[in-house]
Design a protein around this nucleic acid. Structure first.
Lengths: 370, 370
DNA sequence: ACCGGGCCCTAATTCACATTAACTACCGGC
DNA sequence: GCCGGTAGTTAATGTGAATTAGGGCCCGGT
């Protein structure tokens, strides 16, 4: 049997006795359809069905049309095993929203992360989709710049900034969520707060800290101490405890001496500060929340594996905190992307509120309670 | 600022003082590169780098006929909440294998919820991909027939058969796995076996039973009893126990009377036979494996939800069984699909061995042990 | 000189589709 | 009968890259 060629619009045109242009008008639906007589329309659709036609997306996107495909590019594996629980809701949100608006979702897995080579299939592979949702932490700035230069529509999940350009993104509103937590604490009577954050320089870290300062100001308090801990993602899990326990013990003593009654902890990306803090506090006889109220500005990292050194550094307490609206972020990203596609406007940003979790690590300050 | 167009091969050609064809030869590497003088080569590559060139894959696939996109179509939702744990490994396998071979993965979600059809408006969406992996139980036969007619390359995960046509699929080798379990039991000294299966007429059910009969024959035993239980997916969970406990109690008594020392249970798709059997056996004072060895031909169904009537029908025993190589099936499907694409040959099938799990519900027969 | 034959390179074509200007009937108004 | 409008269709063009047939050019052999 001959290798049967896929049917093209020309084939349909021939079969229906019209021109290829007419076929295109009918197939692309919407706009052009109104200019085509009904009987021609049905004749064309008939022939299309008969010949098993389907559009060639390559040709369509070459010409600049719509594919009804949204891309999802992740800077890590799309179905990561380790972080499955973390990424899954994002995927879910993106997939569902995509389906709801009648698009298909293209997972870009073929693009290898890391230093991109121009002459291999690069990131411009994204262009087979109408637009793209980008997900992941290890962002390659050069790639992004290239996308911007190409004027390709994309939306980040998570706040991203690139000097000199406006990027589109959806981001959790860490700032407001943190501010609200500060106000909750001050509302309970806390007057001396401490703030603990990783020593990185990421956007989310800055947002939270800004929220903290804003909350402190709103509550009419003077500036409160902020401490940065060296918790880059680099140290192996085995060393994390040794690395953190000493500085945390020292800080704990200082706070007690200074009359600090509440602590806000930015959990960073992958760090184990919370777990170490819990152990250090127990050892020092500091009860949470009896002696010290603690809130987590996000979600404590889940264990990377179910056992081993890492599992020991996972806390099981029900921390007072807020959570990321992960599925909501995925959905919002899709909708923002569609907006961009429709009006071709400038980059825009969207924030989605975080969800507060009551938890049981917050109480009134000791001086008030006692 | 003018909307800066991205660089094309023509631009590079102009910059390097050569023709577009030469640029193509250099960029595409491999074949043509050998025909291009070294200094021309470097000049072209230079210009390409300078202009920030990258290939337009849309154009490339237009010409080449390949999109480098594999589709994944599921007859149920791609990310179902309750079956997440079941489907996830398939997705993982498909995604990883797809990435490894340099393809992207297109999830067909645009199709309306409910019973999913491939040909919705008469036009086949799947064809935007080079080929497609199909996943799910509720298969629409008309759609499949249409795909076959269109000569569209696809591979099923799970054994599928359509009268009159050969379909491509990858399937777990239930037959061999079941046979091996029979031989393990007879190797331990069991001489009277019983076999329990759902009363459906699905391929996997038949495969297992055939494996059972083969094993029995291989062991030199006469035919052993086979019982079908009415466990279609229809009855609501609340009634399952009532429905099954009586016939199982009766069967159990019969087996005991007949000297049956080992039981093989086909767990079907969604059924709770194992859990009911466990409860009934306990009530009747039959110890597993002391009085009766039991093997499960697959994996006991996970609970649909964490609590409620359903959770009570989930067994926590470590049944002797075999498991589906789910990620492996996903991977195998992708590779089989690629083979089909490359040689355009006829449909073919692939079986993947199941993984035996030791478990603790098998022992020597009582008469031997005692 | 002329021819033959590699070696590099180019012009032209092809791929499937979208878009647009133009063209053809057809019809009503005057 | 002419003008002008409109609905329906078409021919032509553009999109970026791959491929192929062939065309210069140089060099060695005769």
């Amino acid at each position: 049997m001959s290798p049967r060629r896929r049917a093209t619009q020309v084939d349909i045109a021939r079969a229906a006795g019209v021109s290829q242009a007419t076929v295109s008008l009918v197939i692309s639906g919407g706009h052009g359809s109104e200019q085509v007589a009904e009987h021609t329309r049905t004749a064309v659709l008939d022939a299309a069905t008969r010949l098993g036609y389907s559009v060639n997306t390559a040709a369509r996107s070459l010409k600049g049309g719509r594919n009804h495909i949204l891309g999802l590019y992740t800077f890590e594996s799309v179905f990561p095993t380790d972080q499955r629980d973390f990424y899954y809701p994002f995927l879910l949100g993106v997939e569902r929203a995509t389906a709801e608006v009648g698009y298909d979702l293209l997972l870009f897995s073929s693009v290898t992360p890391g230093p991109r080579r121009i002459y291999s299939d690069g990131i411009n592979r994204l262009k087979v989709a109408d637009g793209c949702v980008l997900l992941g932490r290890q962002v390659d700035h050069a790639d992004i710049a290239e996308l911007v230069r190409d004027d390709f529509p994309f939306v980040f999940v998570g706040r991203r900034e690139l000097p000199g350009t406006e990027l589109s993104y959806v981001a959790p509103d860490y700032g407001t969520a943190t501010r609200d937590l500060v106000l909750r604490l001050t509302g309970l009577g806390h007057r001396r707060l401490a703030y603990l954050r990783p020593d990185d320089d990421q956007e989310p870290t800055r947002d939270r800290e800004a929220g903290f300062r804003a909350g402190v100001a709103d509550a009419g308090l003077p500036d409160q101490p902020v401490h940065a801990l060296p918790v880059g993602s680099s140290p192996p899990v085995e060393q994390v405890f040794d690395l953190l326990s000493e500085p945390l013990t020292t800080l704990l003593a200082t706070w007690r001496a200074d009359g600090v009654t509440a602590l806000l902890v930015d959990p960073g990306e992958n760090d184990r500060t919370i777990a170490v803090l819990e152990q250090v506090a127990t050892r020092a006889g500091v009860r949470i929340p009896g002696d010290l109220s603690v809130v987590v500005l996000g979600e404590p990292s889940p264990p990377l594996s179910a056992r081993g050194a890492d599992a020991a550094l996972v806390s099981t307490r029900d921390w007072s905190r807020f959570t990321l609206p992960r599925e909501g972020l995925g959905r919002a990203a899709v909708h923002l992307l569609l907006d961009l596609l429709d009006d071709g406007g400038p980059a825009r940003q969207l924030t989605v509120p975080c969800v507060p979790v009551e938890g049981d690590t917050v109480g009134p300050p000791a001086s008030v309670a006692g």
